[in-house]
Design a protein around this nucleic acid. Structure first.
Length: 241
DNA sequence: CCAGACGTTGTT
DNA sequence: GTCTGG
DNA sequence: CCAGACGTTGTT
DNA sequence: GTCTGG
């Protein structure tokens, strides 16, 4: 599972890291905390125009959806796509063939279940300040004429050793592309078998993780602040987590 | 054959 | 639009 | 795909 | 054994 990310990235960082340009007009604010259920719009690099940043909304609406009501329902169930079945699932198969995208992040959040408690963790890349999550996107035309809605999903895979300890309930993690795979992932001609081979858990040694404080759980607080990333040690009685 | 599904896993 | 459970 | 059907028509 | 309704 992967529902919360740190996309505190400014225009210039993304342009340099991915060799892309921002569009002339865009509305995007970097944030330390984006959550899938808020349907945020975030910067991505897409297979249809790999030289330009595109802003996509979280929660993929498949192209065959018939009305806005169905769209609103399904997009809350397509924040993630399981790597094992992206090729065959009807909601993702067409995107998997031609609409793959790169999702630049600084890190992501996951919760560890200890008894009845859920301890938040922050996970980031051991070497790269900015790293890339593999995504799929879709372009959906609402029948009400309100204009194209571009949406994305994050591909998940089984957890590596580190992530199995952190996300110990579901043992899943986002697909983190190796730097050599980033350009390939968004090539239109990429063979499905080659694409599938990129969707593996990254090695544990590529990631680092630490526990963070309760601010990340506070729905009313402003979580777009570096405070949310501050290391924090959780205690329960004399148990140390 | 065709009606009905089509998706993942919360911190609700 | 395309697949599949019944 | 698979469970369930698989047949015809009196003059009774 | 093979077809077909659901």
């Amino acid at each position: 599972m992967c529902f919360s990310v740190n996309v505190n990235l400014v225009k210039e960082e993304i342009e340099e890291r991915y060799d892309v340009n921002f569009p002339d007009k865009y509305r995007y604010e970097p944030s330390y905390y984006y959550h899938a259920f808020g349907l945020p719009e975030i910067p991505t690099v897409c297979s249809d125009n790999p030289g330009t940043v595109r802003f996509l909304k979280w929660g993929l609406i498949p192209p065959w959806v018939k009305n806005s009501e169905d769209a609103d329902e399904i997009r809350f169930k397509t924040f993630n796509a399981r790597a094992e079945s992206v090729e065959t699932k009807l909601s993702f198969s067409s995107s998997f063939r031609t609409k793959r995208c790169l999702i630049p992040v600084r890190g992501f959040y996951e919760w560890q279940h200890i008894g009845n408690n859920k301890i938040p963790w922050y996970i980031y890349h051991a070497e790269d300040e900015i790293f890339t999550i593999a995504g799929l996107y879709s372009e959906w035309m609402p029948p009400d004429g309100s204009g194209m809605l571009s949406t994305f999903t994050i591909i998940t895979t089984e957890a590596n050793e580190l992530m199995a300890e952190v996300h110990n309930s579901k043992k899943r993690m986002p697909v983190i592309l190796g730097r050599n795979d980033e350009k390939k992932w968004i090539e239109k001609v990429l063979a499905p078998a080659d694409a599938m081979n990129m969707l593996k858990p990254c090695p544990s040694k590529n990631l680092k993780a630490y526990t963070i404080g309760p601010l990340v759980n506070n729905k009313t607080a402003n979580r777009n602040t570096p405070e949310v990333l501050k290391p924090y040690t959780w205690h329960s009685g004399n148990q140390l987590f």
